[in-house]
Amino acid sequence: MKYWTFRMLKEKVSFQITKGWMQVFSIGLLLLIAFFILSLSSGSNWISPTQVFMQLSNMTDEHAFVIETLRLPRTLLAVLVGSALGISGLILQSIVRNPLASPDIIGITSGASFGAVLFISVGTGVVSMSLLPFAAISGGLITATFIYLISWNKGVTPIRLVLIGIGISAILKAGVTFLLVFSDTYVVSKAYIWLTGSLYAATWNDVTSLFWWIMIPLPILIILGRSMNVTELGDDVAISMGIKLQWQRLVFLGCAVILAASSAAYVGGIEFVGLMAPHLARRLVGKSFLGLIPITGIIGALLVVIADLIARTMFLPLDIPAGVFTAAIGAPFFIYLLYRNRNR
């Protein structure tokens, strides 16, 4: 493997990048830009990429509404949601040291769903629906805290975290079904769209809010990220290297929850992205956690942008929730992973 080493400011700053990583990063970024533009061009009427460029650089104002009000926020939201879910899955898989972990399987998404559905069924007509994201994020955070506390026994071990997460997730899904059965038809249809995960009617407000939520864990990940590589060598080795293991686990879990719950809050349950993106990234660039963060983000973004592009153009005039497509690829992928890991 070819390395590039960077050393600056009299060795105060130093890091290493592999050539392979650079290649994957550039190709991934280019692909994302390509699909981003394609996504702006496509829809019920086709706008050529040149026109898209002209609109974006304010050289024309012909497509202002379609691009700047409808398609641009929607595509940006897809990018944000995809990278947040992907990175959340990456964090969880690293904490748990198991490629089968992801925010949907461990119960964070279910917590957010329960919070949101409870809010929709109780709050419709009572409180403003713009508060829905807070209900979902609180649901996710409360669930994660709960799972963490139950798993605690002189420290949290990954396997307890997963098993209790799966259990809590099942209870919450039952709770969601219960709420749906006892709610009005109007509420149920609204909740259903949210549950499957749709980017329909994305607004600039959603984009900026989600952006700021994602900005919370990002610096933490950059500063603490390298400790994750050590933790993957086992708890004993991590402690021996001077890592405060329980503290680290709590902080990273918090980051994963914020990423997953906030994206669930704005688009609902888009499943399996958190499972697939880190796995694909690892295939492409190997094990380094810090190196995986941007690649996982790009792949997650690509998955959601493409899923949403298919969902809203293939069955025109129907606008199908993007979550249907991520699940359609993700579920078989999950089975494949289970099959591959059957002997471990």
């Binding site: 105060k12 700053v13 500063i223 390298r226 290297m241 001077g242």
Partner: peptide, 15 residues
Amino acid sequence: QGRYPHQKWFQQWSK
């Protein structure tokens, strides 16, 4: 990874 305790987040691969 053995170098971990001697490194910082902005100083990951010194001479």
